[in-house]
Amino acid sequence: MNKTVLILLLVCLSVCGAQAQISWPDGKKAAIVLTYDDGLKSQRDIVMPQLEAKGFRGTFFLYGQVVKDSDIPEWREAARRGHELGNHSLFHPCLAGTVETSSSSLCRSLECYSVKDMLTEIGMMNSFLYAIDGKKEHAYAYPCGQSVAGGEDYSRPLLDSGLVKYCRGAAGRHVVEDAKTLNFALIPTLPALTGCKADDLIKYVQDALDKHGLGIIVFHGVGGDYLTVDAAEHQKLVDFLAAHSDEIWVGTFSDVLDYVAEQAKK
């Protein structure tokens, strides 16, 4: 190969790689999104005060079956304070055997759903959330991280339906590095499992920093409820993020993904 052509090829590859990297606002090197599933009491009692003390806001994915009338004023007030409320479906359907089945005679497992059924349920939950926070658009998180209804993947039909713009999907340690290749129907996340330690979560945050990427963490209970992470471990993570606020953007799911979507267009 001609030496000049080879040099030009290498330069092109270098430039293309640089363009793929997300350029974060205000000189930040990475973004971290803290998400919380199932609308649990410990999230309102423990998580929100920890976040707000550092000026942070989280994203809380609610499902209709667990939001009691008495909880609605608290969730409405949380949204007013800047926390994001997300759609986690009405009945939290998962594949059979993933979680304990309900005593109800109705089938609530994903095997019993069609894609149309799932989209209808998500649309109904959007209306429920609108009644709480007054917002017409809500992000979505797949219950149990599963996007197959009746044997068919509903992630792309959901995004194409316009019901939601962003879907939090597959679990793993994957950090989002390239806005242009991100599948907004299956955005990866790191689950903080029972007994998870802050050191492990901080390693994930550091990975996002090293890669100038986006990291998304999902919690359930914090200091209580189920799938519980100790409140002190959660506080250590929040403290680390606050100590590095000059280089890490801690934002809500939709705010950060709105920015990433704009980057993907460039």
Score class of each variant (00 low, 15 high):
L241D: 03
D207W: 10
S155N: 05
V99S: 11
G82W: 07
M124T: 14
G97S: 03
K203L: 14
K135L: 14
D133T: 14
A53D: 07
P49S: 01
G86L: 05
G39P: 08
Q206I: 08
N87I: 03
R173N: 14
V99N: 11
L51F: 02
I46W: 00
Y259K: 03
P191G: 04
P143R: 01
L10K: 13
L209M: 09
K68N: 09
C196P: 07
L85T: 08
Y226C: 06
A141W: 02
I32R: 12
L193S: 13
E247F: 00
S103L: 12
L10P: 12
V205N: 09
D225E: 10
K236S: 01
K116P: 00
L201A: 13
Y142S: 11
G134Y: 07
D71M: 14
K28Y: 04
P73F: 08
T35E: 05
H92W: 01
A185I: 04
S127A: 14
K266H: 10
I132G: 02
K136N: 12
Y140G: 02
G82Y: 08
G55S: 06
V238W: 04
N87R: 13
A20Q: 13
A170K: 15
C112S: 04
Q235I: 06
A30T: 07
V11N: 04
M118E: 05
R156K: 15
G215T: 01
F56S: 04
T59S: 13
P191N: 09
V33T: 11
A30E: 00
S89A: 12
N126W: 00
M48F: 04
L193H: 09
E121G: 14
C196G: 13
F91V: 13
I32E: 02
V5Y: 11
K54S: 04
D246W: 05
Y166C: 03
Q146E: 12
A53W: 08
H88N: 06
T35D: 04
D225A: 10
Y166I: 04
Q21H: 09
K180M: 03
D38A: 05
T98C: 14
D239H: 14
Y142Q: 11
L257H: 08
Q263A: 10
H92S: 04
E77L: 15
W249D: 03
Q65K: 15
Y142I: 11
V164H: 01
D153P: 11
R80Q: 13
G223E: 05
Y36L: 14
L90H: 07
K165I: 01
V47H: 02
A96L: 10
Q21T: 12
W249E: 03
Y166T: 00
L8V: 13
L186Y: 02
D230P: 07
L159S: 06
F219V: 03
V99D: 10
K211M: 07
L209H: 00
H83E: 11
K265H: 08
T252C: 11
V229S: 04
K203M: 13
P188Q: 07
L90C: 09
S104T: 09
R80P: 09
R76T: 14
R44M: 09
F184D: 00
V175R: 07
